[in-house]
């Protein structure tokens, strides 16, 4: 479903991604872990062509992104949803308009149908009744959940989550984990999730990959991660300050 081959990217003359290879099969959720600033968000931005690779290719739905023209690229993107790290809610629109924008711009659904879908998605993320409010009036965690509702509004086949549970209290975070698992199980969503939250990673992931120094240094099932002998991986999942990685 998603195939990344030899992806390299430098930003400001610093190599962020260095020949990264990753595959995500249909219906699978891949969790990408890695230290802050290691390039996880940059990796996600390449998956839907928001950033252009210096070298390497990204293929989704069997189509290589750099060979698509804008119209076809947009068609593919409509089948995907993205939760941005900062939410990226449109602050000139209400929460409901945010969630419904993809539907009202890209489909011929009526206002009432869109309102129904929007209400349903907001309920899924625990924000029922928040629709008429402005994004700037919401708390950080509410914004994140509103952004999640927007990401899944168009019944996407692929969802990219950038830190879905950051900034949420443990109980809400657990609810979001459940939602992500439910999307995977019921709707067969293919997903890449970036997270620092190992509890969430183990819960939502079928597979976990670790990005370090521009490379994927580990890629395996949840059990393989737990039993990995790689000292870097072990230190990361244990959150230890001693080991090959310096805490700061």
């Amino acid at each position: 479903m998603i195939a990344i081959r030899g992806l390299s990217k430098s930003l400001d003359r610093r190599v962020v991604l260095n020949r990264v290879d990753l595959d995500v099969a249909k219906g699978e959720t891949l969790v990408v872990i890695g230290r802050s600033g290691c390039g996880k968000s940059v990796l996600l931005k390449h998956v839907l062509g928001l950033m252009k690779p210096d070298s390497g290719t990204v293929t989704i739905f069997g189509k290589q992104l750099d060979q698509l023209d804008r119209t076809h690229l947009y068609e593919l993107r409509m089948r995907c949803g993205v939760l941005f790290q900062g939410g990226a809610l449109f602050d000139s629109l209400t929460v409901a308009e945010n969630v419904g924008l993809g539907l009202s711009e890209n489909t011929s659904k009526s206002k009432a149908e869109i309102a129904d879908i929007v209400a349903e998605r907001l309920e899924w993320v625990g924000l029922a009744g928040v629709g008429p409010r402005a994004p700037s009036d919401l708390s950080g965690g509410m914004r994140k959940r509103a952004a999640l509702a927007r990401a899944i509004a168009m019944d996407p086949e692929i969802v990219l989550y950038d830190e879905p549970t950051t900034g949420l209290d443990p109980i809400t975070a657990e609810g979001i984990n459940d939602l992500i698992v439910r999307l995977r199980e019921r709707l067969k969503v293919t997903a890449i999730a970036v997270t620092h939250d190992m509890n969430s990673a183990f819960k939502i992931g079928d597979r976990i990959a670790m990005l370090h120094d521009g490379h994927i240094i580990f890629d395996g099932s949840v059990d393989q991660v737990r039993n990995s002998s790689d000292p870097i991986v072990q230190q990361f999942i244990a959150g230890a300050t001693t080991g090959p990685l310096e805490p700061l």
Partner: peptide, 21 residues
């Protein structure tokens, strides 16, 4: 200022990925 803010807060990226030009 408005579009610049939208750019730096990734709202323009968000439009792009929603398939809205």
């Amino acid at each position: 200022a408005e579009l610049g803010t939208m750019r730096v807060t990734e709202q323009i990226d968000a439009l792009e990925v929603m398939g809205v030009d």
